[in-house]
C-alpha cells in the first residue's frame, strides 16, 4: 500500500503563555517504517510534539522534516499525515462509511476518485480494520473499540506516509486495549507506514514499539529500543519511570553504597562519594527467613510469588529467595540485593 517516510525533528520548542515550555529543544530521528512510542508522564509534551508533526500546532523554534521535506509553513491539510485523535473525533453526523470517505471526497476534483472507486476503497478499509458490518451506523451507535478502528480507517483513507496516534487506547477497557494494540502492531507490519503513538502507559510502549522516546518536561530523555531502555537507562528518571523498581536512597563512600537506616547490606558501586539512588527491581530484592524486615503481603500471579515487606519504616516490593517456598504474612525475614542500578542523586 503506502510506503512510510522518515521523520526528523531538531531543536523543537513550543511555549504556551508564560511558564515552562511544553517542548524544550526536542530532537528526534524516526526511521522510515518505524513504530515509535512517545512515552512520558502527563505534561511532558508528548501530545504537543504529535500535534506539531500533524501541523495542528506550530513550533516557536526548531524544524520538522518528513521524508526530507521541511514542514515549516505547511498547513495540516497539505501534509497528508494520518492523525487519530484520543477521543477519535469522528464526524458525529456522518455514517461510518461517510467518515472514512471524507478524506477522498474533499480532494480537488482532478484528484478525487469516482464514486464507485471511493465506495470500493472505503469497504476495503473497513474490512482491513475488521468492521465491515458497521458502514451504515453512526459513531454514537458503535463501541469505543469500534470507533477507534473507524478513526484509524478514516486516517488511512488518505494513504498517509506517516501515521500519528494520540493515546490510541486511552479510552478503552483493559482487555480491548490489549487486543487492539497487538492488532495495531500487526497492521503496521503489513502496511509499513511510519507510525508514532503517544502513550503514558509503559507496558503499552514496551509491548509494541520498535523504539521508545521517553519525554520529560518537554525534552526527549532517551530514545532507544525497549530492552535497551530497560537495561541501560540514561538517568534516574528513566530507571524510575520504567518497571516498578524500588527506589532506595543511599550514601556512597569509598565505592560502597550504604543503605542505612534500611536493613540492607552495603553494595559495591563505581559512583563517586555522595548521596545516590539505587533502583532495585522487585525480583532482585530477595527475602529469606531472618531478622530486619516483616512480610506484609504475599501475592501469587500464577508464575511467581510477590512479597510486600516492611523495613526501616518503608514498604518494599520483594521476592522470596530460592528455597523459601511458603512465606506468610507476619513472617520475619532478612533482605539482600541481587542486583541494583545506581545513579548519583540529583541536587
Amino acid at each position: 500500500m503506502t510506503a512510510g517516510l522518515g521523520v526528523d525533528v531538531a531543536g523543537l520548542t513550543r511555549r504556551f503563555g508564560a511558564g515552562r515550555p511544553a517542548l524544550h529543544g526536542v530532537d528526534l530521528a524516526v526511521r522510515q517504517g518505524e513504530f515509535v512510542a512517545l512515552l512520558g508522564p502527563s505534561g511532558s509534551g508528548k501530545t504537543t510534539l504529535l500535534r506539531i508533526l500533524a501541523g495542528l500546532e506550530f513550533p516557536d523554534a526548531g524544524r520538522v522534516r518528513v521524508g526530507g521535506r521541511d514542514m515549516a509553513g505547511v498547513p495540516a491539510r497539505a501534509r497528508g499525515v494520518g492523525f487519530v485523535f484520543q477521543h477519535y473525533a469522528l464526524f458525529r453526523h456522518m455514517t461510518v462509511f461517510e467518515n472514512v470517505a471524507f478524506g477522498l471526497r474533499v480532494r480537488p476534483r482532478a484528484r478525487r476518485p469516482a464514486e464507485a472507486e471511493i465506495a470500493r476503497r472505503v469497504r476495503d478499509l473497513l474490512a482491513l480494520v475488521q468492521v465491515p458490518e458497521l458502514e451504515r451506523r453512526y459513531p454514537e451507535q458503535i463501541s469505543g473499540g469500534q470507533r477507534q478502528r473507524v478513526a484509524l480507517a478514516r486516517a488511512l483513507a488518505i494513504e498517509p506516509p506517516l501515521l500519528l496516534l494520540d493515546e490510541p487506547f486511552g479510552a478503552l477497557d483493559a482487555q480491548v486495549r490489549k487486543d487492539l494494540r497487538l492488532w495495531l502492531r500487526g497492521l503496521h507490519d503489513r502496511l509499513g507506514i511510519t507510525t508514532l503513538f503517544v502513550t503514558h502507559d509503559q507496558d503499552e510502549a514496551m509491548a509494541i514499539a520498535d523504539r521508545i522516546a521517553l519525554l520529560r518536561d518537554g525534552r526527549v530523555v532517551q530514545f532507544d529500543a525497549p530492552e535497551a531502555l530497560f537495561e541501560h537507562p540514561a538517568d534516574a528518571f528513566v530507571a524510575g519511570f520504567l518497571g516498578d523498581s524500588n527506589r532506595l536512597p543511599c550514601v556512597v563512600a569509598g565505592g560502597l553504597a550504604c543503605f542505612a537506616p534500611l536493613p540492607l547490606p552495603g553494595m559495591a558501586t563505581s559512583l563517586p562519594d555522595g548521596p545516590a539512588l539505587a533502583f532495585v527491581r522487585p525480583g532482585a530484592l530477595l527475602a529469606a527467613p531472618g531478622e530486619g524486615a516483616v512480610v506484609q503481603g504475599v501475592r501469587h500471579d500464577g508464575r511467581a510469588l510477590h512479597l510486600v515487606v516492611a523495613a526501616g519504616g518503608r514498604m518494599l516490593e520483594a521476592a522470596p529467595a530460592p528455597g523459601w517456598d511458603a512465606p506468610r504474612r507476619g513472617d520475619a525475614c532478612a533482605l539482600s540485593i541481587a542486583e541494583a542500578r545506581f545513579f548519583a542523586a540529583q541536587q
Binding site: L56, A78, A155
Partner: peptide, 11 residues
C-alpha cells in the same frame, strides 16, 4: 477536534 480531523484529512 472534528474541525482538526477534517484539516488532517485534507479539507
Amino acid at each position: 477536534e472534528e474541525e482538526e480531523a477534517a484539516a488532517t484529512l485534507g479539507a
